[in-house]
Simulated scan of single mutants.
Amino acid sequence: MPHSLVLNLLPQSPISPQYLTGRHLHALFLTLVSAVDQQLGDNLHNEKSEKAFTLSPLQINGHQRFSHGIYSLEWEYHKPIPAGTPCWWRVSLLDDTLFSRLTPLWLNLNPQQPWHLGPADLHITGILGTPRSSQPWANATTYAQLYEQASEVDRQIALTICSPAGFRQGQYDSALPTRECVFGSLLHRWNKYSGIEFSGEFLEKVFPSFFDIRTEMVADSRSKFIGCLGEISYRILGDVEPQAIKQINALADFALYCGIGRKTPMGMGMIRRVGVHTKVRP
């Protein structure tokens, strides 16, 4: 059962930009896990293969980033986040076992307990697990519900990539969101965690129909990562069985939880499905 949890945070001291990178947020998550299950925290830390969770960059409440009319998340900061600034942070869990083992963390949350992001102290003031109009990133469902509720007739898939997404191709990375990269990434994670396996033969029926994307570079002290941001739509073309259309739509709905591409446990590749575009862009 995938969960998309939004943690509301309140820094007690300024957070320097150097501690707002994906690497430091990844370390904070492992600290939270280890606080309730040390063995699980150690296992997640040592795991080299794909991990059953994703994280967002830290976000300031009420801040929205627009570029070329497209909404995205903040993934880099050039100034400290001041003390007392309400923030939020999305954690998604793709595995039921992971969620259940972390239940004590959610149930016994102490809003006065400090957690550390670099030298800064943070308080977790609340956790959202269901959607609100002011916070669309919080949600939870079952894989069976995702599949059952997916459309058998909708042939248009519109997606917004909200933090830079890049894809491994052989020995190198690519920032181009081809159908193989996007739907291949979603398919791999769906088959790994859902228990409802899709064959993926339908991918050849998916074609890009609209895109307004750009590249961005994310850098920290260790590495540089080039990914894409923006909006892209795909259309299902040709003679396609309703079951295949349903599977494609289920993957598009699943994107909210699992993200796409590389470094999703460090805030990259956050993506969500949006309504079909109706206006003509210049």
Score class of each variant (00 low, 15 high):
Leu44Asp: 01
His45Glu: 03
Lys51Asn: 06
Glu50Asp: 12
Leu44Ser: 02
Lys51Trp: 06
Glu47Lys: 13
Ile70Ser: 02
Phe66Gly: 03
Phe66Pro: 04
Gly69Val: 11
Lys79Tyr: 08
Ala83Trp: 04
Arg65Phe: 07
Arg65Cys: 08
Ala52Asp: 10
Ser67Gly: 12
Phe53Thr: 13
Lys79Arg: 15
Asn61Arg: 15
Lys51Gln: 13
His45Phe: 09
Lys51Pro: 09
Glu47Phe: 04
Leu55Gln: 03
Gly62Ile: 10
Glu47Gly: 04
Lys79His: 13
Pro57Glu: 05
Lys51Met: 06
Phe66Glu: 03
Arg65Glu: 03
Ala52Ser: 15
Pro57Asp: 05
Gly69Trp: 02
Pro57Trp: 01
Tyr71Ala: 12
Lys79Trp: 06
Asn46Tyr: 10
Asn46Cys: 10
Gly69Leu: 05
Ile81Arg: 00
Leu73His: 02
His45Met: 09
Pro80Met: 07
Lys51Leu: 14
Gln64Ile: 13
Tyr77Ile: 05
Pro57Cys: 07
His68Asp: 15
Ile81Pro: 00
Asn46Lys: 14
Ile70Asp: 01
Gln59Asp: 05
Pro82Thr: 05
Thr54Leu: 12
His45Gln: 08
Lys51Tyr: 04
His68Thr: 12
Gln59Asn: 08
Leu55Arg: 03
Ile81Leu: 04
Asn61Ser: 14
Phe66Asp: 04
Pro80Cys: 10
Trp75Phe: 15
Ile60Cys: 05
Lys48Arg: 11
Gly69Phe: 03
Leu55Lys: 05
Ala83Met: 11
Ile70His: 00
Ile81Tyr: 00
Glu50Thr: 10
Lys79Pro: 00
Gln64Cys: 11
Thr54Asp: 09
His63Ala: 09
Leu55Cys: 09
Trp75Gln: 02
Glu76Ser: 14
Glu74Pro: 08
Arg65Val: 15
Leu58Lys: 01
Gln64Met: 15
His63Met: 11
Ser49Pro: 01
Tyr71His: 15
Ser72Gln: 12
Ser67Cys: 10
Lys48Gln: 07
Gly62Gln: 03
Ser67Asn: 11
Glu76Tyr: 07
Lys79Phe: 06
Phe53Lys: 04
His78Trp: 10
Leu44Pro: 00
Lys51Phe: 08
Leu58Thr: 02
Tyr71Pro: 08
Glu76Leu: 07
Ser56Asp: 06
Tyr77Ala: 04
Ser56Leu: 10
Gln59Phe: 05
Pro57Phe: 11
Ser67Pro: 00
Tyr77Lys: 03
Ser72Ile: 04
Arg65Asp: 04
Trp75Gly: 02
Glu47Asn: 13
Lys51Asp: 10
Leu44Tyr: 00
Gln64Val: 14
Ser72Asn: 09
Glu47Ser: 12
Pro82Arg: 02
Glu50Trp: 06
Ala83Arg: 12
Leu73Ser: 05
Ile70Thr: 09
Pro80Ile: 10
Phe66Ala: 05
Pro80Ala: 12
Gln64Asp: 14
His78Leu: 11
Ile60Tyr: 00
Lys48Pro: 00
Leu58Trp: 01
Glu47Val: 00
Pro80Ser: 15
Gln59Lys: 08
Ser56Arg: 06
Thr54Pro: 07
Ser56Pro: 10
Gly69Ile: 06
Ser67Thr: 11
Gly62Lys: 05
Pro82Ile: 06
Leu73Met: 13
Lys48Val: 11
His68Trp: 05
Asn61Met: 11
Thr54His: 03
Ser67Trp: 07
Ser72Glu: 05
His68Glu: 12
Tyr71Val: 13
Gln64Arg: 14
